[in-house]
Amino acid sequence: MSTITLKSAHRLIEAASAEAERIGVPMNIAVVDAGGNLTAFHRQDGAWIGSIAISQAKAYTARAFDMPTADLQPMVQPDQPLYGLEASDPGNIIAFPGGIPLTQDGQIIGAIGVSGGLVDQDQQVAAAGAAAL
């Protein structure tokens, strides 16, 4: 199984951090490997402490379900097929936008998760990080 390297994870974090600075919102940025394990984490000065665990959960969720958390979010709403999914693994599964799987050569090698702003800002910063792969 291929997985993201620490060097690549740092590159993604640098790109995501630059985007967060550009929009003026301090973020927590987490990168997990192909197994969903934390590989690298960065908390920008002033980023919400409460968003540390959220960023890590977004990265884990994106890897666990191999889809962006923004795509998962509509499926976990009431009367939708995955309603209640977040209760299946409390604290680890979260379906707010800001988690994106990372692919290389057609394989998922990890995921990035970002939290600290509005969900659209989190998604924007995560996408900037993922694009650095």
Results as ranks from 00 to 15, higher is better:
Thr3Phe: 05
Thr3Ser: 15
Ile4Arg: 11
Ile4Asn: 09
Thr5Gln: 13
Leu6Thr: 14
Lys7Pro: 00
Ala9Cys: 12
Ala9Glu: 07
His10Asn: 15
His10Leu: 15
Leu12Asp: 05
Glu14Asp: 15
Ala16Gly: 08
Ala18Cys: 06
Ala18Phe: 03
Glu19His: 05
Glu19Gly: 02
Glu21Gln: 15
Ile23Met: 14
Met27Glu: 05
Asn28Cys: 15
Ala30Tyr: 03
Val31Asp: 10
Val32Leu: 09
Val32Glu: 00
Asn37Asp: 15
Asn37Trp: 10
Thr39Asp: 08
His42Ala: 09
Arg43Asp: 05
Gln44Cys: 04
Gly46Tyr: 12
Gly46Ile: 06
Ala47His: 00
Gly50Lys: 00
Gly50Ser: 09
Gly50Ala: 12
Ser51Gly: 04
Ile52Glu: 12
Ile52Thr: 10
Ala53Trp: 02
Ile54Phe: 07
Lys58Leu: 14
Lys58Val: 11
Tyr60Arg: 13
Ala62Lys: 11
Ala62Ser: 15
Arg63Phe: 08
Ala64Val: 13
Asp66Cys: 14
Met67Lys: 14
Pro68Thr: 08
Thr69Asn: 08
Gln73Asn: 15
Pro74Asp: 06
Pro74Cys: 11
Met75Asn: 05
Val76Asn: 00
Gln77Asp: 02
Asp79Thr: 06
Asp79Val: 06
Leu82Gln: 02
Tyr83Lys: 01
Tyr83Ala: 14
Gly84Cys: 06
Glu86His: 05
Glu86Asp: 08
Ser88Ala: 13
Asp89Ile: 00
Gly91Phe: 03
Ile93Phe: 09
Phe96Thr: 03
Pro97Ala: 01
Gly98Trp: 01
Gly99Ile: 08
Gly99His: 03
Gly99Trp: 04
Ile100Thr: 02
Thr103Cys: 03
Gln104His: 14
Gly106Val: 02
Gln107Met: 12
Ile108Leu: 11
Ile108Trp: 11
Ala111Ile: 10
Gly113Gln: 05
Ser115Met: 04
Gly116Thr: 02
Leu118Arg: 08
Asp120Thr: 04
Gln124Thr: 06
Gln124Lys: 15
Ala128Arg: 05
Ala128Cys: 06
Ala131Gln: 12
Leu133Thr: 04
